[in-house]
């Protein structure tokens, strides 16, 4: 396993783990949305890394590769990058909606903590406080 692979997959796994842990354990709305965004970043990074080919350049032809010849063998896979571009835009749309719902929650309750929306044995006491 090369160093690059270790660094890339390591950061993806770390981001995914942090995102899932944050979604499940945080009760602050901003932190929840932040965790969701971190998880999205991990997925996007994973998809882009699948298209990576070691030693090749960005999928743009220039003077070196020549516009007439086929650039096969010199550039990385452009398809995952195009798909991730779509995924980023959709992620942005969902984040925007989530944030405006958080604004509404704050305006009507005065807090960003999800106090009553939780489960577990200590839930009852929390609500009564």
């Amino acid at each position: 396993m090369e160093v690059t692979e270790l660094v890339v997959y390591g950061s993806i796994l770390l981001l995914a783990a942090v995102g899932i842990w944050g979604i499940l354990s945080r009760r602050n709305l901003i932190k929840l949305i932040l965790s969701l965004t971190i998880l999205q970043t991990a997925v996007n990074l994973l998809l882009v890394s699948v298209g990576y080919i070691s030693g090749r350049s960005a999928p743009i032809v220039n003077g070196d590769t020549g516009l007439d010849g086929s650039p096969i063998g010199e550039i990385v896979d452009p398809l995952p990058q195009a798909l991730v571009l779509t995924a980023i835009v959709i992620g942005l749309a969902t984040t925007a909606i989530a944030l405006i719902v958080a604004v509404g929650y704050y305006r009507s309750t005065g807090t960003l903590e999800l106090k009553s929306w939780s489960y577990g044995p200590s839930n009852e006491k929390e609500v009564k406080k």
Binding site: E2, Y9, L13
Partner: peptide
Amino acid sequence: LALLVAATIFYAFVEVGFGEAKV
């Protein structure tokens, strides 16, 4: 659960072949 998901991703993608010319 987070560690489980991370392990699943690792298990799924370790076979993909990082940096290999798949195209």
